[in-house]
């Protein structure tokens, strides 16, 4: 049942949009929505998390801004989290 529900949520977006002619305004809305969803997911995860996760996310953003490489940014964030745990902070 869980599988059916999750698939339904995947399929429903395009079905709803099928009859709609996307105006530039609607497209911009959806485009902003995409970034906003990710922002909300990250923010939610960060409140539930501790300092360790916040440090990891901050390192990721910093390296992303400096290097513009998502892979380096993620490796930096993961490394910070691993160090944090192993040093026992």
């Amino acid at each position: 049942m869980v599988a059916v529900l999750v698939y339904a949520t995947r399929a429903i977006g395009p079905v709803l949009m099928a009859g709609v002619d996307p105006t530039p305004r609607l497209r911009r809305f959806l485009d902003t929505l995409a970034a906003s969803v990710i922002a909300a997911i990250v923010a939610t995860a960060l409140i539930e998390a501790g300092l360790r996760e916040i440090a990891a996310a901050a390192a990721t953003v910093l390296v992303m801004v400096l290097s513009r490489s998502a892979v380096w940014a993620m490796m930096a964030g993961t490394a910070i989290a691993a160090l944090w745990t192993n040093i026992g902070m």
């Binding site: 970034a35 995860a45 960060l46 996760e53 992303m64 998502a70 964030g77 993961t78 490394a79 691993a82």
Partner: peptide, 22 residues
């Protein structure tokens, strides 16, 4: 898995995407 920092990988991935969007 948190010993290896694997538990924060998805969080870091989304943070990186977000930093790109902003």
């Amino acid at each position: 898995v948190s010993r290896y920092g694997f538990d924060v990988v998805m969080l870091c991935f989304f943070a990186a995407v977000l930093a790109g969007e902003v």
